[in-house]
Amino acid sequence: MNNCLHCGARTANPKYCSRSHAAIHTNQQAPKRRLTYKCAECDTLIPASRQFCAVHGKRKADYRLLTVAQLKAKDAIKHPSYYRGYLNSITRLLNAHRPRICQVCGYDKHVEYCHKVPIKAFPDSVAVQVVSGPDNILVLCPNCHWEYDHSLLTINSAPFST
């Protein structure tokens, strides 16, 4: 008779008394994924969902002050194709205080942020806050967004404007 490597119980099996104890012991010894990571700036342990610790996360550059050129630069994002997604996330942050209701029809299940002046119309030297700030953004449902982009909808006819 042998002892289970997990609980110490007597077993006929050479190592474990059950499959669950084998799995528990193996996963504790060699987990498949890391549950904690190190900060990109220092060796402080942080949750896997973060990149920086509390100290270094606050020191990062303010995204509102970035220019479009800085946002497109290779050191700001990993790949040039990520620019649009990163700009969309900044747009959501800059407009988080606004109600999530379509300014035209009042639909509130799903809304999108629509640029009044297209992004490509701005020079690269303009701050992201101007491109994606509340003054250049409309909160619209997908249907109204499409209509606005195809010049079928005007802003002056919006009864639910905020």
Rank of each mutant, 00 (worst) to 15 (best):
54 A>G: 09
33 R>K: 13
75 D>H: 10
10 R>G: 15
94 L>H: 01
13 N>E: 15
2 N>R: 07
102 C>R: 01
74 K>L: 14
105 C>R: 06
114 C>N: 00
136 N>F: 02
35 L>P: 02
59 R>L: 15
58 K>T: 03
98 R>L: 09
139 V>N: 05
90 I>P: 02
142 P>L: 03
71 L>S: 01
131 V>N: 02
156 N>P: 02
20 S>G: 07
135 D>M: 05
160 F>K: 14
140 L>Y: 01
124 D>R: 04
128 V>P: 02
157 S>W: 05
131 V>I: 03
15 K>A: 10
65 L>C: 09
88 N>Y: 00
13 N>P: 11
89 S>H: 09
133 G>A: 03
53 C>M: 04
162 T>Q: 06
14 P>K: 13
9 A>C: 12
15 K>Q: 12
121 A>M: 09
120 K>S: 15
22 A>W: 11
23 A>E: 12
19 R>E: 11
12 A>P: 15
66 L>T: 12
7 C>I: 10
9 A>R: 15
55 V>A: 03
100 R>N: 06
38 K>Y: 12
57 G>I: 01
31 P>S: 15
71 L>R: 03
53 C>Y: 04
78 K>P: 11
73 A>V: 01
89 S>W: 04
2 N>A: 00
128 V>D: 05
45 L>S: 13
53 C>A: 00
147 E>Q: 14
83 Y>D: 02
120 K>H: 13
136 N>R: 03
135 D>L: 06
64 R>A: 04
118 P>W: 01
148 Y>D: 00
72 K>L: 00
128 V>Q: 02
54 A>Y: 11
122 F>V: 11
27 N>H: 07
112 E>C: 02
149 D>S: 09
41 E>F: 14
23 A>P: 12
75 D>R: 09
110 H>R: 09
18 S>E: 06
33 R>T: 03
133 G>P: 01
152 L>R: 07
3 N>I: 05
64 R>C: 07
130 V>A: 10
63 Y>H: 09
120 K>N: 14
61 A>M: 10
150 H>R: 13
56 H>G: 05
40 A>E: 11
65 L>D: 14
101 I>N: 07
113 Y>Q: 04
12 A>F: 15
154 T>S: 01
107 Y>N: 08
